[in-house]
């Protein structure tokens, strides 16, 4: 299995520039004997205008990588670039501003401020910046996620799926350089989850948005343009045009470094594996 650390060069001519780049990123927790290398010398570029999934078993460092790329955590070594900006050189105030103006977030749960309505939650980053939101764009986004009738509701009055849609709308409303989604469908049933993923897909296709999603769900990965696989803090594989079956397969092999084939599948899947 090739252990590439950059995107496959198959569409070199049309390969877009990286929206987010990690260069020799290293993150170590603790010290001495108890030191844990959550990220071990990771170099990767995530293309603009694309939907990239970051996958791996628990402890692989996928969440750590995303947090560091989003400016929520700091690296022990190496650097992260968003566009031309080196995150390591920014002060807390500048980082905060970066998150406010150029990064969108969708978390697994607890995405919304309970005291604000859906409309106010969507406008939150703009309001924090003291900016007037772009009316027309926000309307477009709201229609895209289908929330026109729920704008004046508070989170407590919305279903889980609707809450996540508000989160998506908020992330899109600011037209950020990159949206980071951390297990966005983790708390949803498959139907709501599928809706969210479809919205994110549309945002990439129709609006040219860059989305980076951390997930362990192969179905979610199937919506992405590329899937990056992490294990033990390192990139072990990059899959282009992932499907849920291929991703599931790859994940199984991630868990077991020496190929261990389950007896039931051994005969069944042999010929069809690509």
């Amino acid at each position: 299995m090739p252990s590439t650390q950059t995107l496959p060069p198959r569409t070199a001519a049309t390969s877009p520039a990286a929206a987010v780049r990690a260069e020799a990123a290293t993150k170590v927790y603790g010290a001495g004997d108890t030191a844990v290398r959550a990220l071990d010398d990771v170099t990767i570029g995530l293309p603009a205008g694309r939907f990239t999934a970051i996958m791996g078993p628990s402890g692989s460092g996928k969440s750590t990588l995303m947090h560091c790329m989003a400016g929520l955590d700091s690296l022990s070594g190496g650097r992260v670039m968003i566009g031309e900006i080196d995150l390591g050189k920014l002060s807390d105030k500048q980082l905060t501003r970066l998150r406010r103006d150029h990064i969108g977030f969708i978390f697994q749960a607890f995405n919304l401020v309970p005291t604000l309505t859906a409309a106010e939650n969507i406008a939150l980053p703009a309001k924090l910046a003291g900016r007037r939101p772009d009316r027309a764009w926000v309307d477009t986004v709201v229609r895209t996620v289908g929330l026109q009738d729920r704008l004046s509701h508070r989170p407590a009055e919305l279903s889980g799926g609707q809450q996540q849609r508000v989160a998506v709308a908020r992330a899109l409303a600011g037209r950020p350089k990159v949206i980071f989604a951390d297990e966005p469908t983790g708390n949803l049933d498959s139907r709501s989850g599928g809706e969210i993923l479809a919205f994110m897909r549309r945002a990439v296709d129709e609006m040219g948005q860059t989305i980076v999603m951390v997930t362990h769900d192969p179905v979610a990965a199937g919506y992405a343009d590329a899937a990056v696989f992490l294990a033990d803090g390192r990139v072990v594989d990059v899959m282009d045009a992932p499907t849920s079956e291929r991703v599931l397969d790859r994940m199984k092999r991630l868990d077991a470094p020496t190929p261990v084939v389950a007896p039931a599948l051994a005969g069944a899947g042999n010929g069809r594996r690509s």
């Binding site: 929520l72 807390d92 105030k93 905060t96 501003r97 998150r99 406010r100 103006d101 977030f105 978390f107 607890f110 995405n111 919304l112 401020v113 309970p114 939150l124 980053p125 924090l128 910046a129 908020r170």
Partner: peptide, 16 residues
């Protein structure tokens, strides 16, 4: 705590 973390994540400054 979570709510405060969320606000900081989407860009509320310490002063705000």
């Amino acid at each position: 705590t979570r709510e405060l973390g969320l606000l900081r994540a989407v860009g509320q400054s310490r002063r705000q």
